[in-house]
Amino acid sequence: MRRERAPLAIGILAAAGAAFFILPLIGLVVRTPWADAARAVTSADTLEALRLSLVASLTATGVALVLGVPLAWVYARIEFPGRSVLRALTTLPMVLPPVVGGIALLLAFGRRGLLGSWLESSFGISLPFTTAGVVFAETFVAMPFLVLTVEAGLRSMDRRYEDAARTLGAKRWTIFTRVTLPLIAPSLFAGAVLCWARALGEFGATITFAGNFPGVTQTMPLAVYLLLGTNPEGSYILSLILLVVSLVVLVGLRHRWLGSA
């Protein structure tokens, strides 16, 4: 690699850009009461929120894999009218304010919602205020990250292996599971991790659609928000836990699966 010196202006602006992200993190670390940290991390409320966050975000990632990989496959392989519009609609949650997503979910899956009222009257299923509701909200917001990553993987893979399998007489489903999926494993993994990290941090859609109750719907980000008013130190500590988890994910992802820069 060629060694290059940055022009002064670029160097200064880049440093300012980096400081913009680093300073808030330093603020959090500096203001965290480390003496109380161990107690806060192991307190029942925190552990409950952490457990719920892990369960809900992992389940959401599972749902996203089951529904999102086929969706990505269709986007990458099937030509049909309105494909780009459909893709835009299904990836809208990436840029939509999550609270808006939560309201939309209520209007579709709430007790009076389009599908929700039928779910309630026919099966007695009501999603708001349940852990399933949290999974719904997290999947809604996080799945597009998986779909786009997997679609990109499908488009850039070498399709000659699929052609070879076909000429050898493999069925379409066999080709998908035995050839396509193993070939796109890196993007599958990267998409799943991005999706999981987004689900873990989900706040707006969750509090709007699923509400907030410890042990049922109160995930870590909700606990952070509600503690800020009354127990700021506790809130700093929870924030730091989320920060460390996210950092581990990003660093790990970069080195192991996306190739180091």
């Binding site: 205020f129 509090i207 509400g211």
Partner: peptide, 21 residues
């Protein structure tokens, strides 16, 4: 036992208006 502990009064009212609670 409340089913949810909302962040403020306005969200309680809107959830009742929407029929969720």
């Amino acid at each position: 036992r409340p089913r949810s502990l909302e962040a403020d009064v306005k969200s309680v009212i809107s959830k009742i208006e929407l029929g969720e609670a």
